[in-house]
Amino acid sequence: MSVTIYDIAEKAGISRTTVSRVLNNSGYVKEETRQKVLKAIKELNYTPSAIARSLSTSRTNTIGVVVPEISDPFFGEIIKGIGEIADKHELNIILFDTADSVEKELKALKLLRQQRIEGIMITPTFTEKNFNSEYLNTLEKLEIPVILMDGHVNYEEFSGVFIDHVRGAYDGTEALIKSGHRKIAIITGDMNSRPAKERLKGYKKCLIRNNIKVQDRYIFCGDYKYENAYQITKKILKMEDRPTAIFVCSNMMSLGCVKAFNEEKITIPNDMAIVGFDKLDVLNILGLNISFVNGLTTELGRVGTKMLIDKINNKNKKNNRQIERITLLPELILKGSERYIYNKD
């Protein structure tokens, strides 16, 4: 049988209004009376209803998190950072995985709106070309803070935290050049996404600044997926004038490359050098020292959550509607896989 505030009031010999004040920490209550309520709560083993409390305080202490693919370690790291800050502020999280579908993302946004959440953190689906008026109207009608996590929405401006993808790709490519490589391939992400476009831009920029011709035959369009990168790497290894190094634009694609290397008995970096984007713990577990550009995704989650909390707490202030954007500078982690050893010439 559930215990209500009526039971607590009766046991403590005080009014229901006073019990409510103690439970919600609102209004003045004598310390002696407060102790009576707390004692009654303990003796009755009362657990307050989160739903009832949210109705009385107009606060749900809940935020929504929407990502394209939760199985991707990139988003797992972001969620880890979100969780760290959310726990410190006693925030609940409702998480949606949209499977990179605009339709599922739209459904998630509508469901979150019904849950009376206080704010949303979202990485919009990569298929930006599919954004439509219904999607944009739904975002506009949320009337709660929305923080972008390294993603963009066409025709709309929101606050958010982003990674400098151009800088990251430039640094990763430069590490290969400094090691002696001149024939460097790139496996991009989904070219419908801004991060993929920016990483390709950084790669090209680095080649040009180092007087290396950008060759289309060394540019391979991936989709951030393991299987696609595996197939692309197989093709690269069969090229007549194949590159000596590959810059891979996501952690899951790096794993696909490694699988292809293993099947073709290609050793790193003796036969092929590689630098990836974002860390992948499984590579360390397997004892593979793959150099990578660390996008600081966990920190992205932390910073984004702090930004959201600030906007929630200051939602009635005029300057709270100003667009705030923070860009994190990635760091290059070299483990030796970028070295130049193999020389076909």
Rank of each mutant, 00 (worst) to 15 (best):
L148H: 00
S20C: 10
L237W: 00
I268F: 13
G83Y: 03
L328V: 11
L237G: 01
G81H: 07
E134T: 09
A175Y: 02
K204I: 14
A50Q: 12
Q215F: 12
G202S: 09
R116F: 13
S58I: 04
L280T: 03
H152P: 00
G76R: 14
K39Q: 14
I117L: 11
H181I: 13
D150L: 11
Y28V: 13
E331Q: 05
E90A: 14
R199D: 03
N132W: 03
E264K: 11
V37P: 10
G119W: 04
D281H: 02
K306V: 03
L142M: 13
I79N: 05
G189S: 04
I232E: 05
A273R: 01
S71E: 05
Q114C: 06
I120W: 14
L328P: 04
E263H: 07
D164G: 04
D164L: 01
N130G: 04
D164S: 04
M253I: 02
Q114D: 15
M239H: 12
Q215G: 00
L142Y: 05
I144C: 12
P124S: 05
E299Q: 13
E174M: 15
S159F: 01
E157M: 08
P330S: 11
F247H: 05
I232N: 03
V29W: 08
N210C: 03
K88E: 14
F126L: 14
E103S: 09
M191R: 10
I285V: 13
R199W: 05
G151N: 06
R209K: 15
L255M: 14
A9C: 04
Y226H: 10
F74P: 08
I274V: 14
P48N: 07
I79G: 03
G81M: 06
Y218I: 06
F277N: 08
K42T: 07
R339M: 15
D72W: 05
N251C: 14
K238N: 15
K197P: 04
A86C: 02
N289A: 08
F131M: 12
R59H: 14
L95N: 09
M191T: 12
P68F: 15
E331L: 00
D97K: 02
T244I: 12
N132C: 10
L38Y: 01
M239T: 06
Y170E: 04
F126Q: 15
E140C: 00
R199P: 03
G301I: 10
S58V: 08
V153S: 13
E43I: 02
V282D: 09
I78H: 10
Y226A: 00
I63N: 08
P73R: 13
V166T: 13
T305G: 02
Y342I: 04
S337T: 07
I63K: 06
G168N: 04
L328C: 09
Y218A: 09
K318D: 14
E299P: 00
L38F: 03
A12G: 13
I212D: 01
T17A: 15
G172Q: 06
I117G: 01
V29K: 10
I266W: 01
K201P: 05
G256M: 07
Y224Q: 02
E134R: 15
E198C: 10
T57W: 08
N284H: 06
R321D: 09
E118P: 00
F131A: 12
L308Y: 08
G304S: 11
K318G: 03
G13K: 11
I186A: 03
C249I: 12
I274C: 15
T123M: 10
L148Y: 00
L136D: 04
I232S: 06
A273G: 07
A175M: 12
